[in-house]
Amino acid sequence: MHARTEAPAEAAPSWTGEIFSILQRFDVRQVPYVPDAGHSDLIKRVLASSTMRGIPLTTEEEGVALLVGAWAGGQRGALLMQSSGVGNCINMLSLTQIFRFPFLTLVTMRGEWGEFNPWQVPMGSSTQAIFELSGIKVLRASHPVEVSEVVEAAAGQAYNALTPTAVLLSQRLIGAKVFVK
């Protein structure tokens, strides 16, 4: 059996705190997620927040539908997931066109930068194209210094212009997960 080394115990990168602050500033209230190591610090912050509700999902498509309901009820949301979860969302992504609601998703990428696990590569390779084919704008952050600017722009156009937007947080940014025996 292979033991799996989770995200190193060192301090979380500062950009996760920046993302949290941006979501706060945009008055995001519902944060559905399927866990990913790259999102673990942000998820902790959301679950500890008094203004945001973190909502664990059984599958990512639930989160797209949830955000429709949230917006119908007057609240903004943002969906956190890993690239492999994007494929689970495809039919539900049609809701962004049907309802024209403010859709923002932050996607941690796998399968593109020093990946160890071949099972992550196919979906990671098609993530961006799937979003674009689904009518969703894609912005990408690959370096810590640009995360804040990219997420700010994405949140701005999602919430102010009802332009459905996905932010891809590159595996280069997050760091490839280390698998050791």
């Binding site: 509700r53 429709v68 949230a70 119908a72």
Partner: peptide, 12 residues
């Protein structure tokens, strides 16, 4: 997706 839309609305 119906139940999840209901959940988002119910929480809001």
């Amino acid at each position: 997706g119906a139940v999840m839309m209901g959940l988002g609305m119910a929480l809001a």
